[in-house]
Computed example of a mutant assay.
Amino acid sequence: MIGTAGGSAVATLAERSSRYLLMDHLGCEPSGDAVRYSLIATDLEVCFADPMGP
């Protein structure tokens, strides 16, 4: 999610079965690299969801 005028950004990571949501502040750099480093810092295994999955 990107804030008004691109002033800040948040990466979201949702676990489907438990509905656990993790939000990580990206500052004012909403780039793919910033999201990747944010997810690496969580030390969680990240898999991309299948849009046709449950």
Rank of each mutant, 00 (worst) to 15 (best):
D24F: 04
A11R: 01
V46W: 00
G27P: 02
L44R: 09
P51G: 05
A9M: 02
R36A: 14
G27K: 02
L22T: 08
S31G: 07
A5K: 15
A49R: 13
E45I: 11
R19T: 08
A9D: 00
G53E: 11
L22A: 08
D33V: 12
R16W: 08
D43S: 14
S38D: 05
L21K: 14
M23T: 09
A14E: 12
V10D: 02
C28K: 07
S17T: 13
P51M: 03
A34S: 13
A49S: 14
E45N: 12
C28V: 03
T42V: 03
E45V: 12
D43M: 11
R19H: 12
D24G: 11
S38P: 03
L44V: 05
A14R: 15
P51F: 05
T42R: 09
T42A: 06
L13D: 05
G27H: 05
G6S: 04
C47P: 00
V46C: 05
L21D: 08
E15V: 05
G32Q: 07
P54L: 13
L39D: 01
S18K: 07
A34F: 01
T42H: 07
G3K: 04
G7Y: 01
C47V: 13
T12L: 14
A9S: 06
S17G: 12
G7K: 07
S17Y: 14
L13I: 07
E29V: 03
L22K: 08
H25M: 11
T4D: 13
G32I: 02
V46A: 04
F48T: 10
L39S: 03
A5L: 13
C47T: 13
D33C: 10
A41M: 08
S8G: 10
M52K: 14
